[in-house]
């Protein structure tokens, strides 16, 4: 099962990049946490989302103010 920001999701994606595309995430300024690991965007395409286990995903906007 896939959980996105603690909500169950019916989406089926082969990789994180695939998921990001299905969610139409912005191409800039978004951070993605998979099972408590913050993964650089460069790794999304090579990070598979196997269907055998639950995946907990958190998505948030990066900010730069101070």
């Amino acid at each position: 099962m896939l959980y996105i920001n603690q909500q169950k999701s019916a989406l089926q994606a082969s990789t994180l990049a695939d998921l990001a595309e299905q969610l139409a995430l912005p191409t800039q300024g978004v951070a993605l946490v998979l099972n408590r690991q913050l993964l650089p965007r460069a790794l999304w395409a090579q990070t598979p989302l196997s269907t055998e286990q639950d995946h907990h995903i958190e998505i948030f906007q990066l900010v730069a103010g101070g």
């Binding site: 800039q28 300024g29 906007q61 990066l62 900010v63 730069a64 103010g65 101070g66």
Partner: peptide, 8 residues
Amino acid sequence: WQVLQNCR
């Protein structure tokens, strides 16, 4: 990336 969100 162009800019990230800031306080302004």
